[in-house]
Measured scan of single mutants.
Amino acid sequence: MSGNGNAAATAEENSPKMRVIRVGTRKSQLARIQTDSVVATLKASYPGLQFEIIAMSTTGDKILDTALSKIGEKSLFTKELEHALEKNEVDLVVHSLKDLPTVLPPGFTIGAICKRENPHDAVVFHPKFVGKTLETLPEKSVVGTSSLRRAAQLQRKFPHLEFRSIRGNLNTRLRKLDEQQEFSAIILATAGLQRMGWHNRVGQILHPEECMYAVGQGALGVEVRAKDQDILDLVGVLHDPETLLRCIAERAFLRHLEGGCSVPVAVHTAMKDGQLYLTGGVWSLDGSDSIQETMQATIHVPAQHEDGPEDDPQLVGITARNIPRGPQLAAQNLGISLANLLLSKGAKNILDVARQLNDAH
């Protein structure tokens, strides 16, 4: 009898209710805020589980004197976190989706994509230029951005401005803007500013005609071990179906173009009346040469937790077992079709030249 009692006690200790789920994140304040929001949602869904947040620095956090596009290494903000995932030191990792490459290392998958916040870019102005827009900034004003995508589009749109690289986390960039006289304004992701509670610093939100956004911008991705079915089931509740389908289309477009950090590629997606609209573009580094096109596809946005595919093969690095396969494939095909259209119009040449120029500098 006593033996059975011990077995029952052991089973209770090993039951999922007692389990601590370890969540990996970057150390920056924004990353911690984003991770806290994901953990809060998981806690609400699984009140019996405990969650421990483990923060670590990544290569991208450490190399702050070089433009991201020049470092010449993929997975700048993800490699150390993936290493911890691989060694079973954490069970899942919360990322900004735009930091996750469209091809993940073997053994990993994006197990959830959370509801997207505003994906557009924002302009934050130096205190002396508050009330201005990019259009009304004085001639030769210097605007800071760490992104080739932003610089290429904005140089084309605002030729009277000069664009220079600015690195560091959000706090560091804002301090550089406010305390030094080098920059009249800087460009940042609206979602990051909003998550930090800095709505009052948003001086201008850039519309798609001015600057399309990065693939996955404004959404959070939760990376897990691809074979860890328990954790895949656990994080599945975080999937937002519309965000998922938009981001599958965007990531398929980028992957098929073979774009990345070192080339200016941008997108804009919208879901309306059962249609998914995808606009994508590529630019030369100075913005003088560009190709942009829009395509659409009829896609039914499923309700969360309709029964999805059981075999769960990944699409552009994403596993969404609780979302039907048909809409996911339709979104992926839309991204591939748009990429093929741009490639047929000469996108590869623009991107190759951009890559060579970026590598040469």
Rank of each mutant, 00 (worst) to 15 (best):
V20D: 05
R22Y: 09
R22W: 14
R22S: 11
G24V: 08
G24P: 00
T25Y: 01
R26G: 00
S28C: 04
L30Y: 04
L30P: 00
A31I: 00
A31T: 00
A31M: 00
T35K: 00
D36N: 10
D36A: 09
V38F: 05
A40L: 08
T41K: 09
T41A: 10
K43C: 08
K43P: 03
S45Q: 14
P47Y: 07
G48H: 06
G48C: 11
L49Y: 15
Q50K: 14
F51W: 10
F51M: 09
E52A: 14
I53T: 07
A55V: 12
M56F: 15
M56S: 14
G60R: 04
D61R: 00
L64W: 15
D65P: 09
D65L: 04
A67Q: 08
L68K: 13
L68E: 07
L68C: 09
K70T: 09
G72R: 08
E73Q: 10
K74S: 06
K74F: 08
L76K: 14
K79P: 08
L81I: 13
L81C: 09
L81N: 02
E82A: 11
H83N: 13
H83E: 13
L85W: 02
E86K: 14
K87L: 11
N88H: 11
E89G: 08
V90N: 04
D91Y: 05
L92H: 04
V94K: 03
V94L: 08
S96G: 10
K98Y: 01
D99E: 06
L100T: 06
V103K: 13
L104G: 08
L104R: 07
P105Y: 03
P105W: 08
P106I: 10
P106H: 13
G107C: 12
F108W: 14
T109D: 00
I110C: 08
G111Y: 02
G111K: 04
A112E: 03
I113E: 00
R116V: 03
N118A: 14
N118E: 14
P119C: 10
P119T: 12
D121A: 03
D121W: 02
P127L: 14
K128W: 10
F129P: 00
F129A: 06
F129H: 11
V130Y: 14
K132G: 13
T133R: 14
T133G: 06
T133A: 07
E135L: 13
L137H: 05
P138N: 11
P138I: 08
K140C: 10
K140G: 11
V142E: 11
G144C: 08
G144A: 11
T145E: 01
S147I: 08
L148V: 11
L148Y: 02
R149H: 06
Q153D: 01
Q155I: 15
K157H: 13
F158D: 09
P159C: 13
P159N: 13
L161F: 07
L161Y: 12
E162R: 11
R164M: 12
R167N: 08
R167L: 08
N169P: 02
L170D: 02
N171D: 14
L174Q: 05
L174N: 04
R175T: 09
R175S: 12
R175V: 13
K176P: 01
D178L: 10
D178N: 08
Q180N: 15
Q181A: 07
I186R: 03
I187M: 08
A189Y: 01
A189C: 10
A189T: 05
L193G: 13
R195E: 03
G197K: 03
H199V: 14
V202A: 10
V202R: 09
G203S: 15
G203M: 03
Q204N: 02
L206Y: 02
L206S: 04
E209P: 15
C211R: 00
M212C: 03
V215M: 10
G216H: 00
G218T: 01
A219C: 02
G221E: 00
E223T: 06
E223A: 04
V224L: 15
R225F: 05
A226C: 13
K227G: 03
I231E: 01
L232I: 14
D233Q: 08
D233T: 08
L234P: 02
L234E: 02
G236N: 01
V237E: 03
L238A: 01
D240N: 15
T243N: 10
L245P: 01
R246L: 10
R246E: 01
R246Y: 05
I248M: 05
I248S: 07
A249L: 04
A249H: 00
E250F: 01
R251S: 07
R251D: 02
A252T: 15
F253R: 01
L254S: 05
R255N: 04
H256C: 12
H256P: 05
G259D: 11
G259C: 09
G259Y: 05
M271V: 13
D273I: 07
D273N: 15
Q275Y: 01
Q275N: 03
Y277D: 11
Y277L: 12
L278H: 03
L278F: 10
L278G: 09
L278S: 07
T279Y: 11
G280E: 01
V282N: 03
L285N: 15
G287V: 15
S288W: 14
S290Y: 12
I291A: 13
I291T: 08
I291H: 10
Q292A: 08
Q292H: 14
E293S: 12
Q296H: 14
A297R: 02
T298M: 09
I299R: 08
H300R: 05
P302K: 05
P302G: 15
Q304E: 13
E306C: 04
D307N: 15
P309F: 14
D311Q: 11
D312W: 06
P313H: 06
L315P: 10
L315D: 04
V316E: 05
I318E: 05
T319P: 05
A320L: 07
A320C: 06
R321A: 12
P324K: 08
P324Q: 10
Q328A: 06
Q328G: 08
L329C: 03
L334V: 15
I336V: 06
A339P: 00
A339E: 02
L341S: 05
L342S: 07
L343T: 09
L343H: 13
S344G: 14
S344L: 02
K348Y: 02
K348M: 06
N349C: 05
N349H: 06
N349D: 12
I350M: 09
I350A: 06
V353G: 07
V353A: 08
R355D: 15
L357W: 00
N358P: 15
D359S: 03
A360V: 15
